[in-house]
Simulated scan of single mutants.
Amino acid sequence: MSTKAVDLNHKAIVFSDFDGTITLTDSNDFLTDNIGYGYKRRRELNIEILEGRWTFRDAFRDMLSSVGSKTPFEECKKLLIENIQLDPGFKPFFEWCQSNDVPIIVLSSGMKPLIRALLDHFLGAENAEKIQIVANDVKIHPDGTWEVVFCDESHFGHDKSRAIKPYREAREKLPKEKWPTFFYCGDGVSDLSAARETDLLFAKAGHDLITYCKREGVPYKVFHSFEDILRDVKDVVEGRKTTDEIAENR
């Protein structure tokens, strides 16, 4: 896994999950439910991950193998572009971040080629290029089948905390008054490793990340769309509120 050089010359940096957070529907869930072995088995494995009986890496590989073993990758990409929708609040959020020099870094357990294709579709290729993506990759075999290629050897497959760690370490070398504020936005089990790593965690209403935060005592702010995130990020960046004042579950 690699990231671009750490640049902390910003008031804030937003790290965000992609599937089910920036999009309304998780693209990997969509593929598993509609092409793979279906919703019932997928949800069973999500519960197994939350309860610690399966690793995310093993469960995610199992889900995607039920898709990649029978449907070509380009066909999956086309299907997602036709069916996945952007959170309606994300484009205004992206535009505000661009205007205020706040980088958005996507940390995803999905596959970079699919994420890039969807962002190009949603935002246009020129705008999409302004969003850094750290994600898993894909290996396409000669017979047309494909499989996920994980970022690292962790039981997450992509331990998102590892991508945030260089930013935290670099920030700690600066005087505290020069620290940018770090935000993380997520929704599900792939975000568990990142849940404690930033100054303010946004957790999507009705999803597994909130279940984890409540159980483990991790502070978070619930959101329904990026309209909520934009409001709170603006309040922090513009000095009206602190992250501690916004966070719940403290």
Rank of each mutant, 00 (worst) to 15 (best):
S2P: 00
S2N: 13
A5G: 08
A12R: 01
S16A: 08
D17K: 03
G20K: 05
T23L: 14
T23C: 13
D26I: 03
F30E: 15
D33L: 05
N34M: 01
G36I: 12
Y37C: 03
K40T: 02
E44F: 04
N46P: 00
W54C: 09
R57A: 13
D58V: 02
A59C: 04
R61F: 13
S69I: 07
T71V: 13
E75R: 15
I81Q: 15
I84D: 15
P88T: 11
G89V: 06
G89M: 08
F93I: 11
E95H: 06
W96V: 13
W96Q: 03
Q98D: 06
S99N: 11
D101W: 03
P103E: 09
P103S: 08
I104W: 00
V106G: 01
L119T: 15
D120C: 10
A125L: 05
A125K: 15
I133V: 14
A135Y: 10
A135R: 12
D137C: 00
I140Q: 15
H141M: 14
T145F: 07
T145R: 15
F150E: 15
C151K: 12
H155C: 04
F156V: 06
D159H: 14
K160N: 11
S161M: 14
A163K: 14
Y167T: 04
R168W: 11
E169M: 14
A170V: 04
K173I: 01
P175R: 14
K176R: 11
K178L: 06
P180K: 01
D187K: 07
G188R: 03
G188M: 05
S193H: 11
A194T: 05
R196A: 08
A205N: 10
L209R: 12
K214F: 00
K214E: 13
E216F: 06
H224T: 09
H224G: 04
E227N: 12
E227T: 08
L230P: 01
L230S: 03
L230A: 06
D235G: 00
V237S: 02
E238V: 08
K241G: 01
E245Q: 14
A247S: 10
N249H: 12
N249K: 04
